[in-house]
Design a protein around this nucleic acid. Structure first.
Length: 267
DNA sequence: CGAGTGCCCTGACAGC
DNA sequence: TGCTGTCAGGGCACTC
């Protein structure tokens, strides 16, 4: 296998790719939003190819129309080239020498996988106690749990009835448990729907993700809250658009009735 | 060291 | 019509 940067300027987002030459991909794993491809056969053991799609990154066996940033070339197999296209250049495609994540602080400090046993309510509640920052901002750091981005953070906080600006350490144990369940439910449903296509996102096969139609909070400022009928609002938190129902998600107060895993009100 | 801010990058869109 | 300005956001560098 060979890896090369195409078009994109050299830099940390495409580091050390030349060192993948001659190595073999042992498997494909995922941590949060990072794809991890452990390599084998290099001068130094433990090298890992790291791919992050960012906002607009896509992998495909067919050459993209433009904006290709990197590619892998294989010596055997039905698809000799894997192309990495990334219009807005938020993605990464790099080799991690020896698999040492020191150069990727978010990956190094990443919390448990959301569907794993390690993501339990008590541990999540303890993690939230460690930060004074807004609970939504803390979720986006990937430290309390892996893989939650801006859209799903808004959705999960809405479901759990927690105001996004609540300081993380002020989230009660009961709220943390509700938020944990909400994160799992939102991610499970979004994965089942093949993701959320607002503009750019496509599945690996080019299909649209259907979860956009199921969003309750994100992008719904000015609309009626599906739960209480109040008016949804938008605010900016940590530089990110943030959508909430001020009635269901009161600032620093207890949660409204949380939604169950089905997405319906729990009896 | 934790928290907050702004940058990167490009296309879509609003407004004049 | 064509220009300018604004917005979108994952991760990280930078500042305080």
């Amino acid at each position: 296998m060979q890896a090369e940067r195409v078009g994109a300027p050299p830099g940390p987002k495409y580091a050390h790719l030349e060192e993948a030459a001659g190595q073999r991909i042992r498997g494909v794993r995922r941590r949060g939003k990072f794809l991890l491809l452990p390599l084998q056969g290099g001068a130094r053991p433990g090298d890992v190819l790291v791919i992050h799609l960012g906002m607009t990154g896509r992998l495909s066996a067919r050459a993209p129309e433009g904006y290709e940033r990197a590619r892998l070339t294989f010596q055997e197999g039905p698809d000799p080239v894997l192309h990495f296209q990334d219009v807005r250049r938020f993605g990464r495609f790099l080799l991690l020498p020896g698999g040492d994540p020191a150069g990727l602080p978010t990956l190094a400090a990443m919390g448990p996988e959301p569907m794993s046993r390690a993501f339990d309510a008590a541990a999540f509640a303890r993690s939230l106690q460690r930060s004074r920052t807004a609970v939504k901002t803390y979720l986006l750091s990937q430290r309390p749990v892996a893989g939650v981005g801006n859209i799903y953070a808004d959705e999960a906080l809405w479901r759990a009835g927690i105001h996004p600006a609540t300081p993380a350490r002020c989230v009660s144990g009961a709220q943390a448990a509700a938020l944990r369940d909400a994160i799992r439910a939102v991610l499970r449903n979004a994965i089942r729907a093949q993701g959320t296509t607002l503009n750019d996102y496509r599945t690996v096969n080019g299909a649209l993700g259907a979860y956009a139609a199921a969003l309750s909070a994100y992008g719904h400022a000015g609309d009626a809250c599906p739960r209480c009928g109040g008016t949804m609002e938008r605010m900016v938190l940590g530089g990110r658009g943030t959508h909430l129902c001020p009635r269901c998600q009161p600032a620093l107060a207890g949660p409204a009735t949380p939604l169950g895993p089905s997405g319906r009100l729990t009896p």
